[in-house]
C-alpha cells in the first residue's frame, strides 16, 4: 500500500502546482529531502539531519515534540472556542454552559482544550526534568535552556489566564488565590495585582484582561520563543548526545548513563 501511495504522491509532487508551492523539488534523493527542510519557512527551523539513535523513543521520550503537539491542539481548539465566547461577565459563564448544552461537540471541544492544557503543563515540566537529567542544557545549549525556562513560564501563564475564562466558582477563586499571592510582593505588591487584574479584585475587567493575554499576547509570545527554541536546537548541534560535547566534558563522564 505504501508503495502505491508513494507512487501517486510522487506523481503529485511533479505537478506544476505542487512545485509552485513547495520549493523542495521532486524525487527521493537525499538532496531533495534536505531541500524539503531547508526551503520551507517553518521546517527550516529544524535540522536537516538527525542522528539516527536520537529518533529512538528512549532517547528523548519525544517530550518536546509532544509539548509542541499539545500546543497545536490548544491553538486549534482555542480558536474554535473563541467563536462561541464573549469575554464579559456573566455572559462568559452562560457561553460555557451553552457550549455544553447547545453547541454541537462544544463540550468535546472544551474538554479537549482543558485536558490538553493540563497535559501541556505536565509535559513542559517533564521535558524540563528530562533535559536536565540528560545534561542536555550544557554548553553550547545554555541559552536554549533559558528559552526553555521562559517557555515554561509562558505555558504556566497561558494555563493560568485560561483558567479564569469559564467564569465559574472554580475559576474565580483559583484566580483570586493566585492573584492574592501577587500582592505579597514587597512594596509594589498591590500595584502588581492591580496591573494584573485591572482592578482591586477579580471582576469583569480581570476577565477581559486575562482573555486578551490568553488569546493574543501569550500565544504570540509562546510562538516566538518556540521558534527560537527550535532554531537553537538546530544551531547548537542538533539534539544532544554525549558525543556532541566537547572532549573536556567527556573525559570524566561515567561510562554508562542509566538515565
Amino acid at each position: 500500500m505504501s508503495t502505491t501511495f508513494n507512487r501517486y504522491f510522487g506523481e503529485l509532487r511533479k505537478t506544476r502546482i505542487w512545485r509552485s508551492v513547495f520549493r523542495g523539488g521532486t524525487g527521493q534523493s537525499t538532496l531533495r529531502n534536505s531541500m524539503a527542510i531547508q526551503q520551507n519557512v517553518f521546517l527550516h527551523l529544524l535540522p536537516t539531519k538527525v542522528r539516527t539513535r536520537m529518533i529512538d523513543f528512549n532517547a528523548t521520550w519525544y517530550l518536546g515534540t509532544l509539548t509542541l503537539g499539545t500546543f497545536g491542539i490548544l491553538v486549534i481548539t482555542g480558536i474554535l472556542l473563541m467563536l462561541y465566547y464573549h469575554p464579559s461577565a456573566p455572559q462568559a459563564y452562560a457561553d460555557t454552559k451553552d457550549l455544553q448544552f447547545v453547541v454541537s461537540s462544544g463540550q468535546f471541544l472544551r474538554n479537549l482544550h482543558r485536558w490538553s492544557a493540563h497535559a501541556m503543563v505536565f509535559l513542559v515540566f517533564a521535558h524540563m526534568f528530562r533535559v536536565f537529567y540528560r545534561g542536555a542544557y550544557r554548553p553550547p545549549r545554555e541559552f536554549n535552556w533559558v528559552i526553555g525556562v521562559i517557555l515554561l513560564l509562558v505555558t504556566l501563564l497561558l494555563s493560568y489566564t485560561g483558567y479564569l475564562l469559564p467564569w465559574d466558582q472554580l475559576a474565580f477563586w483559583a484566580i483570586t488565590v493566585g492573584s492574592n499571592i501577587a500582592s505579597a510582593v514587597p512594596i509594589m505588591g498591590d500595584k502588581v495585582r492591580f496591573l494584573m487584574l485591572g482592578g482591586h479584585f477579580v471582576n469583569a475587567n480581570a476577565l477581559l484582561r486575562f482573555y486578551v493575554l490568553h488569546c493574543m499576547i501569550l500565544p504570540l509570545a509562546a510562538l516566538f520563543f518556540i521558534a527560537i527554541h527550535f532554531w537553537r536546537i538546530r544551531k547548537d548541534g542538533g539534539l544532544y548526545t554525549r558525543h556532541s560535547e566537547p572532549d573536556a566534558v567527556m573525559t570524566t563522564a561515567p561510562a554508562e548513563r542509566p538515565l
Partner: peptide, 12 residues
C-alpha cells in the same frame, strides 16, 4: 559545535 561522524537520518 563539534562534529562526530555517526549515522544520521534525513529529517524529511
Amino acid at each position: 559545535v563539534q562534529a562526530y561522524d555517526e549515522p544520521k537520518l534525513q529529517s524529511f
